[in-house]
């Protein structure tokens, strides 16, 4: 029988390496499974939809009403009927970022004074040729009763 101590320690080292390797492999397989099973705490700024708290200045700028929608800016305003309305904040004239203008209660582009009404329609006589792209807004309430808005790209958009 094998009584050589160096041989025995070499064998136990080999077993240890194999054990560690398999543990690593198992972790590599189980990690994505675990990530899949645990739901994300809060969806971050996505490219198709975003969850917003309209009163949180970190999410929606209180002055310009701009929020981040993927890699592009969006704009969240209260429409003429008091309902929330969200649009792409990319001006249809030369793609500048539009903003809410409190004094005129309109959406205004600072580059060439383009104007849109609160339904996102371009005001005739100002440079933008088309209305702003509109997003869908759904109001929802979380467990604590806090109201948030789910802003998503419409099917037509």
């Amino acid at each position: 029988m094998d009584r050589d101590p160096t041989l025995r320690s070499r064998r136990s080292f080999l077993d240890m390496v194999i054990g560690l390797g398999f543990t690593g492999l198992a972790a590599a397989v189980l990690y994505p499974v675990a990530r899949y099973l645990i739901p994300p705490v809060r969806s971050g700024p996505g490219t198709r939809s975003v969850v917003l708290d309209p009163d949180d200045p970190a999410q929606v700028d209180p002055e310009t009403r701009i929020f981040v929608f993927g890699s592009r800016p969006g704009i969240l305003v209260k429409g003429p009927g008091g309902q929330w309305k969200a649009f792409s904040a990319v001006c249809t004239h030369l793609s500048c970022t539009v903003r809410f203008q409190a004094e005129s209660n309109q959406i205004w582009c600072p580059c060439h004074n383009g104007l849109f009404d609160l339904n996102g329609r371009n005001i005739p006589g100002t440079p933008p040729p088309r209305p702003l792209e509109e997003f869908e807004v759904h109001e929802r309430e979380d467990e604590s009763g806090k109201k948030t808005l789910l802003v998503s790209k419409g099917r037509s958009a």
């Binding site: 890699s71 592009r72 990319v90 500048c96 600072p110």
Partner: peptide, 21 residues
């Protein structure tokens, strides 16, 4: 993922257009 960089670039381009005006 360079979403944030794209956003900053959009802002830079805004200023380019505004500079021309």
């Amino acid at each position: 993922d360079l979403t944030k960089a794209r956003l900053e670039l959009t802002r830079a381009r805004d200023h380019l257009i505004r500079a021309r005006v």
